[in-house]
Amino acid sequence: MSQVSGKKVLIVDDEEKLRSMIAMVIEYNGAIVSQASNGVNAFEMLKKQSFDIVVTDIRMPNGDGISLIDSIQNHFKSSKKPHIVVMTAFSFIEDKALLNKGASLVMKKPFLFDQLVGDIDCLLSFGCKESA
């Protein structure tokens, strides 16, 4: 049984196709999944309900991933802060900087979806911070 089973996961990406496929795969592993197409909408959802994990893209129109990470860091107490998994297709920001900002995991597109679920599993089991 995957560690994500029963967890509330928010997927944030402006690529609708990719977002829905990630949602499908994570849902398949037993998670309760919500979706948002940009950082601004995602943050609104985060304020209304609690999530265990936020999986977010970086480059999005109307609210990028970096601003979303900053908003999460500023708004939530550490006990209520969701794990943040960042997906980047290409970014001039280094992985280390993303981890320092508060991301728990950096996934580089294109990644295999098995790997995404496996890494999130590892994150939930050991709280490990690593870059895929």
Binding site: L18, A89, P110
Partner: peptide
């Protein structure tokens, strides 16, 4: 721009 559709293909 190339990595995004590649991720979709992987998906």
């Amino acid at each position: 721009e190339i990595n995004n559709p590649l991720a979709i293909l992987a998906g």
